[in-house]
Write a protein that binds this DNA or RNA. Structure first.
Lengths: 130, 130
DNA sequence: AAACATTAAATGCACTCGCATATGATTCTG
DNA sequence: CAGAATCATATGCGAGTGCATTTAATGTTT
C-alpha cells in the first residue's frame, strides 16, 4: 500500500524539480530571445561544428537532429523554422537525397549561442550542486 | 571544461527520462479520458477525501489545490473547468469568503479516478524499478 | 517502366499552457 | 464609511506541442 505511495511521491517530487529547473532555464534563455527547444537545437549544431574541423560544415540533417534533441519531428521542424526566421540557422537541401534538409548555424546563430550558453550553464550548475 | 559538460549531459538525460515517463503516463491516462493535469487534480481530491472521515467533504479550495498540484493558477482553473464539464468534479462557492471556490469529487469522478489509478501506478512502478 | 510502399520534412488542427488582465469580494486606511 | 489596496478566481490571447495528414522524393516489385 505504502510502497506504491512512495513511488508516486518520488515521481511527483522528481517531476516538480525538473519542471522548476525547466522553468528557470526557460526564463534565462528568454533573456536571449530563445526558448529551450531552440537553444537545444543551437547547442547540438554547435557541438557538431566543434566536433568537426570547423570548416566546411553543412550542418546536420533534420533526422539526425531529431534523434539527439528529443523533440517530436513536428516540434523540431517548427523550432528550426523559427530559428531560420530569426536568421540563426540556415536550411539547405541535401543533394544526395532531395527529401533531406541540412540545418547549419549561421554566424549570427553562433554568436547568439555563445551569448546564451553561460546563462544556460549557470542555471544548470546551480541546480546540480556543483 | 568537462565538468560543466557532464552536468549538462546529466541534465539532458534526466529531462529525457522525465519526458519519456510523462509521455507514457499521459498516454496511459488518455485511455481513461484524462490528461496528467486532470488526473493530478482528481488524485489530490481523492487523497483529501481519504484523509477525512469520508463523509461531509466539501472538497478543497482552488488555492489549496494550487499549492499541492504544481500547476499555474490559470492552468489549474482550466483543468478544473474541464473536469467539471465532464461531471467528474463539482465547484461550489465558499460561504465564508465568497471569492473562494470549493472543488469536490463527484461520484462519477471518484469512479473515474479509481478506474485510472491502476494504470497510473503501473506506469510509475515500472519506471521506478519496483 | 508503372504502380505501390516507404521515407523526410512541412503543415492544419485542436489542445494546453503561461502571462497579463478582468471581475468580483474582502480588507485596510484615513 | 468611502476609496484604495489586496486577494481569489476566471479569461483573452499568443505561443508551443502532438497527432494526423500532406507533399515530394526515393526504393521496390513485377
Amino acid at each position: 500500500m505504502s510502497e506504491v505511495r512512495e513511488q508516486v511521491e518520488e515521481w511527483r517530487e522528481l517531476a516538480r524539480q525538473v519542471a522548476a529547473l525547466s522553468c528557470r532555464l526557460d526564463k534565462a534563455l528568454h533573456g536571449h530571445g530563445l526558448g529551450m527547444s531552440e537553444f537545444e537545437v543551437l547547442d547540438r549544431l554547435a557541438d557538431h561544428r566543434a566536433e568537426r574541423g570547423d570548416e566546411e560544415d553543412r550542418g546536420l540533417r533534420m533526422q539526425q537532429l531529431s534523434e539527439e534533441v528529443h523533440l517530436t519531428q513536428s516540434a523540431l521542424s517548427r523550432a528550426v523554422a523559427r530559428l531560420e526566421k530569426e536568421g540563426l540557422v540556415q536550411r539547405s537541401m541535401c543533394s544526395q537525397d532531395r527529401r533531406g534538409v541540412f540545418v547549419a548555424l549561421t554566424g549570427e546563430g553562433e554568436r547568439r549561442w555563445e551569448e546564451a550558453c553561460p546563462s544556460h550553464r549557470a542555471v544548470i550548475s546551480e541546480a546540480f550542486g556543483r
